[in-house]
Amino acid sequence: MRASPPTWIKLLVPVKRTVDYSVKVRVGPKGVETAGVKHSLNPFCEIAVEEAVRLREKLKEQIESITVVTIGPPKAADVLRTALAMGADAAIHVEVKDGQEVQPLGVAQALKVIVEQEKPDLIILGKQAIDDDSSQVGGMLAGLLDWPQANFASKLDVEGDKIKVAREIDGGLETLSMKLPAVVTTDLRLNEPRYASLPNIMKAKKKPLKKMKAEDLKVDLTPRLETLKVEAPPARQGGAKVSLMSDRTVESVDEIVSKLKEAGVL
């Protein structure tokens, strides 16, 4: 942390490449089939990038830079380009081998090293990746750095060297205030991510993208959880549809009620 309150803020946005949210994944003999399946930037990471870009639009030169970082296979460079096209300035790609699994703890420990190198003031991440659904990296990173955290943010305001965050909790919203540096994870309601325009996609190709090897970070990325098996969930029995036409609604509601009685739920 800087000695005086920062008049400029460096942002770091860790992102992940995941199977596209609209894809219905299939479970094969070796787990979830990801080869040949459409991948994209994890939706919550998209929201994180958007929030970083909006902060700059709002705070202008107070935002010194926006750096995106990913730890992933060679193809993960695509999502870095997407983030650059959305408005990030620079990207860091910590490359791991295709198919190598890096679990949240490994990601958080690797990010800690990146944070020590880049010295950001604010880290914005997605609240969860839609593939492993762990929802851990943000909190782990905050714990490793001993920085304050605001998980599941739906509103983020920067006030000098402090941030005020409304976070989504069970039953409503909670507002927290904390000093920078801090870690924030984004919830769905934080913003609506923009589409990258074609000129910006072209410009993004010229923005700096630094490649690093996992070994450079000197972090042990070996998974602590061994996946013994991955199975498809049990299929539900196809239900009977009751009725079609709106003039039969009354009768069919009766049918539903009697079926619920049979099933003992009424």
């Binding site: 949240p104 703890l105 659904d133 990296v137 909190g139 782990m140 599941f152 069970d170 998974p223 602590r224």
Partner: peptide, 21 residues
């Protein structure tokens, strides 16, 4: 829950443990 998801990863980070969610 929101609380478990908020606090446990931080504990896991401090202890250097891979959490199971």
């Amino acid at each position: 829950s929101a609380q478990g998801k908020n606090v446990f990863p931080r504990v896991a980070g401090i202890l250097g443990v891979q959490q199971i969610s």
